[in-house]
Protein backbone atom coordinates (compact mmCIF):
# COMPACT_ATOMS: atom_id res chain seq x y z
CA UNK A 1 0.00 0.00 0.00
CA UNK A 2 2.81 2.36 0.83
CA UNK A 3 4.52 1.55 -2.43
CA UNK A 4 1.34 2.41 -4.34
CA UNK A 5 1.23 5.74 -2.56
CA UNK A 6 4.92 6.42 -3.16
CA UNK A 7 4.53 5.62 -6.85
CA UNK A 8 1.58 7.99 -7.23
CA UNK A 9 3.38 10.82 -5.42
CA UNK A 10 6.49 10.34 -7.55
CA UNK A 11 4.45 10.43 -10.74
CA UNK A 12 2.69 13.62 -9.73
CA UNK A 13 6.03 15.16 -8.79
CA UNK A 14 7.56 14.26 -12.15
CA UNK A 15 4.77 16.09 -13.95
CA UNK A 16 4.57 19.25 -11.89
CA UNK A 17 8.35 19.63 -11.63
CA UNK A 18 8.92 18.54 -15.22
CA UNK A 19 11.50 16.01 -14.16
CA UNK A 20 12.26 12.50 -15.40
CA UNK A 21 10.60 9.97 -13.04
CA UNK A 22 13.92 8.14 -12.72
CA UNK A 23 15.44 11.18 -11.03
CA UNK A 24 12.66 11.39 -8.45
CA UNK A 25 13.31 9.80 -5.07
CA UNK A 26 12.52 10.29 -1.40
CA UNK A 27 15.29 12.85 -1.04
CA UNK A 28 13.88 15.09 -3.79
CA UNK A 29 13.12 18.44 -2.23
CA UNK A 30 12.75 22.11 -2.97
CA UNK A 31 16.50 22.38 -2.44
CA UNK A 32 17.60 19.92 -5.10
CA UNK A 33 14.82 19.93 -7.71
CA UNK A 34 15.41 22.71 -10.20
CA UNK A 35 11.81 23.55 -11.09
CA UNK A 36 10.43 23.26 -7.54
CA UNK A 37 9.43 26.86 -6.92
CA UNK A 38 6.49 28.54 -5.22
CA UNK A 39 4.16 28.10 -8.21
CA UNK A 40 4.99 24.45 -8.92
CA UNK A 41 4.90 23.77 -5.17
CA UNK A 42 1.27 24.89 -5.04
CA UNK A 43 0.47 22.93 -8.21
CA UNK A 44 1.98 19.91 -6.46
CA UNK A 45 -0.10 20.40 -3.31
CA UNK A 46 -3.32 20.93 -5.28
CA UNK A 47 -2.64 17.81 -7.37
CA UNK A 48 -2.05 15.74 -4.24
CA UNK A 49 -5.30 17.05 -2.77
CA UNK A 50 -7.18 15.97 -5.91
CA UNK A 51 -5.47 12.59 -6.17
CA UNK A 52 -5.81 11.54 -2.52
CA UNK A 53 -9.00 13.49 -1.75
CA UNK A 54 -7.34 15.49 0.99
CA UNK A 55 -7.55 18.98 2.39
CA UNK A 56 -4.08 20.06 3.33
CA UNK A 57 -3.96 22.78 5.97
CA UNK A 58 -2.45 26.07 4.72
CA UNK A 59 -0.06 26.10 7.69
CA UNK A 60 1.31 22.71 6.64
CA UNK A 61 1.69 23.59 2.96
CA UNK A 62 4.82 25.67 3.56
CA UNK A 63 6.41 22.87 5.55
CA UNK A 64 5.94 20.11 2.97
CA UNK A 65 9.09 20.83 1.01
CA UNK A 66 10.42 17.35 0.37
CA UNK A 67 8.89 14.14 -0.94
CA UNK A 68 9.74 12.27 2.25
CA UNK A 69 7.89 14.84 4.37
CA UNK A 70 4.92 14.76 1.99
CA UNK A 71 4.58 11.00 1.98
CA UNK A 72 4.83 10.85 5.79
CA UNK A 73 2.19 13.58 6.00
CA UNK A 74 -0.23 11.81 3.68
CA UNK A 75 0.21 8.52 5.55
CA UNK A 76 -0.50 10.34 8.84
CA UNK A 77 -3.67 11.92 7.41
CA UNK A 78 -4.87 8.60 6.07
CA UNK A 79 -4.34 6.92 9.45
CA UNK A 80 -6.32 9.70 11.11
CA UNK A 81 -9.09 9.21 8.55
CA UNK A 82 -9.40 5.53 9.34
CA UNK A 83 -9.49 5.87 13.14
Amino acid sequence: MNNELKKKVFFIASHVFDQNIKKINLDSSIKNVKKWDSVSHLNFIFSLEEEFKLNIEPMDIVKLTSLKKIIDYILKLKKKGLS
Binding site: F11, I12, H15, V16, D18, N43, F44, S47, E49
Partner: peptide
Protein backbone atom coordinates in the same frame (compact mmCIF):
# COMPACT_ATOMS: atom_id res chain seq x y z
CA UNK B 1 -8.07 17.74 -14.17
CA UNK B 2 -5.54 18.41 -11.43
CA UNK B 3 -2.50 20.55 -12.29
CA UNK B 4 -0.36 17.41 -12.59
CA UNK B 5 -2.83 15.78 -14.99
CA UNK B 6 -3.00 18.90 -17.12
CA UNK B 7 0.78 19.22 -17.31
CA UNK B 8 1.04 15.54 -18.19
CA UNK B 9 -1.53 15.81 -21.00
CA UNK B 10 0.12 18.93 -22.36
CA UNK B 11 3.47 17.18 -22.54
CA UNK B 12 1.98 14.28 -24.49
Amino acid sequence: LSPAEVLKENKL
